[in-house]
Structure formats: C-alpha cells, structure tokens
C-alpha cells in the first residue's frame, strides 16, 4: 500500500456516496417521479397564480380555492388513455362527494396542457362526458402560454409528444391544501383514499 492511498480512497468513497445520496434524495428514489413526490411531501410548494379559463368561459385563479382542498389533474381532451382513467376517477370522487354533502370542502380541477386544441367547446364536451360542473369540478385551460409553462414546471409535469399526435405525460392527482400549496402527489385510485388525503390536507 502506498502513501496517500487510503486518504485518496476515503475521499473518493465519501464524495461518491454523497453525490449518489444527493441524486437519489438520500437513497430513497431513482426516478424523477419519486423525487418530485418526495420533494412535495417534505416541502409543500406554492403554485403560481396563473389565470385559467373554465368550461363556461369564466376566468379564475387558484386563489378561488382558498380554504378548501383541491384535487388537480392535468389532461388533454383528445387523450385516449390515461386521462380517461383520471376523468373516471374524478367522476367517482364527485359522486362520493355528492353522496355525503357534509364533506364538500373538496373541489376538483382538470387542467388541459393542450391549449392549441382545447378551446371552450372541447372543454365543455370533456366536462359533459364526465359530468363535471363548475365550480365544484372545473375543466380549464391556462389563459396564457406562460401561465401553462409556469404551472407545468411548478407541478413537475413533463409532457412529451407520443407517436400518434397525442402526448405522454406523468399522470397523477395533485392535492392542494387550504392555503393553495401543493402538498401531495397521488396515484389515481379509489375516491375514499383521495378524499381521506384531501380531508387531511384541510384539517
């Protein structure tokens, strides 16, 4: 063994472990999806107050939801696959909400990231397909490109074109608390689970 070998090896191992640990958020995640969920859970983040336009053509911002829990999904109305599942999920949440009127401190918001194709008419037909009515369940599109970009960045949504003229995106359901902060990123699932998380977020 030569002089300087052990210190150099120690330095390499220490910096190597530190870098790996940093890249994996403390050896807990290896994917971007896992990393953003963990980051949001530990550090709830304020979302940009972008102006959105809903299925009735009304303009609003996230400030409209202060004091309530809000479940958000990102969609495009032409989506043949996952958005339908998300829409169905939201539909079931809405049905559950209507059943027990007492816990209606939860609102739903579907945001389209395809402003080119999702005009008011497309939003309306999507809303009709899943029984969405404003203001309990708005189907909306950001009023400006900048607003859309800021929202996608803040929520950590990555949209890439698929090979069939549509998009692939990291689908999830986003929970905002009463202060309008993004506090959880959840998988689509039974309404009870989503509502329990939402109730937890406003309490």
């Amino acid at each position: 063994m030569t002089r300087g070998f052990l210190p150099l090896l120690g330095f390499v191992i220490a910096t190597g472990l530190a870098t790996l640990g940093f890249a994996t958020s403390g050896f807990r995640v290896v994917t971007t999806e896992g990393a953003r969920r963990l980051a949001v859970e530990h550090h709830p983040r304020a979302v940009p107050d972008a102006v959105l336009v809903d299925q009735d053509g009304r303009r609003f911002t996230f400030a409209a939801y202060r004091g309530k829990a809000l479940l958000v999904e990102f969609i495009y109305t032409n989506c043949p696959t996952i958005c339908g599942i998300l829409g169905d999920d939201f539909g079931r949440v809405l049905a559950t909400l209507r059943q027990d009127r007492g816990t209606s401190g939860v609102d739903l918001l579907s945001i389209s990231f395809d402003p080119a194709r999702d005009g008011p008419r497309a939003l309306r037909s999507y809303a009709a397909r899943f029984g969405a009515n404003a203001p309990g369940w708005r189907v909306a599109v950001p009023a400006t490109r900048e607003g859309l970009r800021a929202l996608l960045k803040s929520f950590g949504v990555v949209v890439i074109p698929d090979r069939f003229g549509g998009f692939t995106h990291n689908a999830a359901i986003y929970l905002l608390d009463g202060q309008g902060r993004l506090v959880r990123i959840l998988d689509a699932g039974p309404p009870a689970t989503l509502l329990a998380e939402a109730a937890h977020a406003v309490s």
């Binding site: 300087g4 070998f5 090896l9 390499v12 191992i13 190597g16």
Partner: peptide, 16 residues
C-alpha cells in the same frame, strides 16, 4: 502513487 493499483481511480469510475 496514491492511486495504488488503480483502486481509487476505478472506485471513482464505479460511482460516476
């Protein structure tokens, strides 16, 4: 000299 048998160097490569 400190890179004895190339071990620190190769450990660096494995980490990177």
């Amino acid at each position: 000299e400190a890179d004895w048998l190339g071990i620190p160097g190769i450990v660096l490569v494995l980490f990177s």
